[in-house]
Structure formats: structure tokens, C-alpha cells
Design a protein around this nucleic acid. Structure first.
Ligand SMILES: [Zn+2]
Ligand SMILES: [Zn+2]
Ligand SMILES: [Zn+2]
Ligand SMILES: [Zn+2]
Lengths: 159, 159
DNA sequence: CTAAAATTGAGACTGAGTCTCAACTAGATT
DNA sequence: AATCTAGTTGAGACTCAGTCTCAATTTTAG
């Protein structure tokens, strides 16, 4: 089953009306790994120019509220979004020198986390773990000779 | 030694000119646990109204580039900043509704992390863990009526 | 002291995202 | 199928955070 069909069902189950525009925006959104809101606007309009900017942003809010959209913030520039529906949860280990990204799962973390959250009376909605370091290869390279770290940008994934 | 003195030294060592305005902004910034940029602008101006908004934002960029400023993003609203220099490591639990930020330490977590990193041959340099959720109060409040109090935690006052 | 370089204040500007509202559906109900 | 109505849309004005410009000022180097 296509991912967007399942997401449409998810929205429907929440009593959200499925319009032509929403279907289109959702389909374009799931077709990208990472995208900025404005990129999505342009992408949707390349297919159906009449779709309003506000409509696209409203769909992003719907997906966010449905818990299937992640936002990746950087210091510079607009955030990148990512539809996470149907993807297994994972965290990230990144090399600050070469930009390598390792994705991994750690159930003990996830358990510990629930514990911490309950201690403070919180209801957990989502979380982000990012580990920054040097990969084996980069540990043995003279920093002066090392290639510039490719800025994480769209490759950076937040759990 | 006061934290802001050490930060001023850090900036100086980077060849950054220390002006009266910069000293004031740094001192006000380190006096808060978490703050939005606009809160800092208002805070600084309460002491010295002539300081320009741009000056405050420029100091934030300097602190960021010096690696002593962390940015905490939410879905709604502006990011919160935090001067991390000289503080014991901690992670964050944030309420997405009211913006409350709880800092906590979890040694088991940190240990587990070292383990994971070593498994991949990495040398850990830094990390961030952010847990997003609803605080106890916000779980029982209609989102539409929820107040949005800025959580301006004052740690120390600098004249 | 003087000149060059960096920083500042003020406010215009940008860009992301939100809001308003009249016109328009999707989907429920005859 | 026709009707009804609450939810949705397009268009563009609007808000807000953050950046930029530039003349005036301040700092540092010589
Ligand atoms: Zn995790
Ligand atoms: Zn590497
Ligand atoms: Zn930690
Ligand atoms: Zn709250």
C-alpha cells in the first residue's frame, strides 16, 4: 500500500476532510525525503498552479498534528520537513568532519526516556537525539588536511 | 570566575572586539537560563535603551560562532537560546504548548551513549537530546485557551 | 595623533508563516 | 440526485523574527 494512501486514511480517521488540494500536497510531500515549505509550494504549483500558498502550509500543520511530520531546524535558513509516517524510529550519530551519518536504534534509550518524562509529569510527543563526533577515519586525519565538513543541511535527520 | 568574564576572554581570543554594548549583551544573556532573542533585546534595553536590536542579534551570532550558544526550536513561536559555556552538561524536556523548558541530567543515558558511540568507532564530541511533550498543566488545558507565558528564568542579576 | 578598520544605531527590508473573508466544495442528509 | 452546511479554498494583506544598509562613531594600529 502506498504511503500517501495510508496517510490520507489517517487524516480521514481524524475527521479531516480530504480535498483534491490536500491529496496533491500530501502526495508531493511524501515523494520528497526532505523539503522546505517553500520548495513544497513550488513543487505543488508545478503541477497545479492554482493551489494557494496557505493551503500548503495548512497541510503541513495537519500532518504535524497527525504526528507524521518532522521539522529539522538549522541556524541559518528555513527548516526542512520530513514525512515520517511508515518509517522506523531511529536516532543519529554524525561525524562533524566528513559529514557521515549513522542511523541506529537503541531500545534502552527509548525506555529510559519514558521514565524521565514521567518523572516530570510530561506527556511525550516526540524527541531528538543527535550525537556529534569524529568517525574512525577522521580521528586519524590531520584536521588541517581534512576536507571541509559538508554542511549537514538536508542530510541531517532528526529523530 | 564569573561566567561572562570567561566568555569575554573567549571572544577576545578569537580577535573579536569587546565593546560596551557587547559586554552588556553577554552579561544579560548569561544571566538567563533560556531566552528568546526579543526577550534579550527588551532585557538589555531595560538597562541601556540605546542599544540597537541589530547589536543584540549580532552578539547572538558571535556566541553561536564561538560555540557557546544553543538554540532550542519549537513548532510554534521563536526559538529559545541558551548560553552553555561553563554549565554542567544537561538535556532538555520542553512543553510544546507553553514553552516551559526543564533541564535534567541522566547519567545512565550519558553512559549508554558512550557505549553506542564506541560501537561505531566514533569519538564523541557533543550531543543534544531534546524531548518534546506536554507539561502537566498543558495536558489539562484546552489548547485554544492556553496562555503562552514566556519562561524567563532569571539566574543572576548583573548591574 | 592620525588613519584604517570595526562597530554601532536607526530603520528599511526580507522571508517565513499566519490571518481574513468571500466564494467554494466534500460529504452527510434527505 | 438534489440539498444543506460546516469545513476549505484562493488571494492577498498582514505579522513577526531576523537581516541588511549606511552614515556616524568608536576602537585599535602605527
Ligand atoms: Zn530515540
Ligand atoms: Zn568522519
Ligand atoms: Zn546528554
Ligand atoms: Zn506547558
Amino acid at each position: 500500500m502506498k504511503r500517501f494512501v495510508l496517510i490520507e486514511q489517517l487524516l480521514k480517521d481524524k475527521g479531516i476532510r480530504l480535498t483534491t488540494q490536500r491529496r496533491l500536497v500530501v502526495r508531493r510531500a511524501v515523494s520528497h525525503l526532505h523539503f522546505t515549505a517553500e520548495e513544497l509550494v513550488a513543487d505543488v504549483r508545478a503541477i497545479e498552479p492554482s493551489v494557494a500558498r496557505g493551503t500548503v502550509y495548512r497541510v503541513l500543520i495537519l500532518l504535524h498534528e497527525a504526528g507524521v511530520l518532522e521539522k529539522h531546524d538549522f541556524w541559518h535558513g528555513p527548516p526542512y520537513y520530513e514525512v515520517t509516517f511508515g518509517k522506523a524510529h531511529h536516532d543519529h550519530l554524525m561525524c562533524v568532519q566528513c559529514g557521515e551519518i549513522i542511523e541506529f536504534q537503541e531500545p534502552r534509550w527509548e525506555r529510559l526516556q519514558e521514565e524521565v518524562v514521567k518523572q516530570h509529569g510530561y506527556q511525550l510527543l516526540s524527541h531528538t537525539h543527535k550525537l556529534y563526533g569524529l568517525c574512525e577515519r577522521c580521528q586519524h586525519v590531520d584536521p588541517k588536511r581534512a576536507s571541509k565538513p559538508p554542511h549537514l543541511h538536508v542530510e541531517e535527520v532528526v529523530a
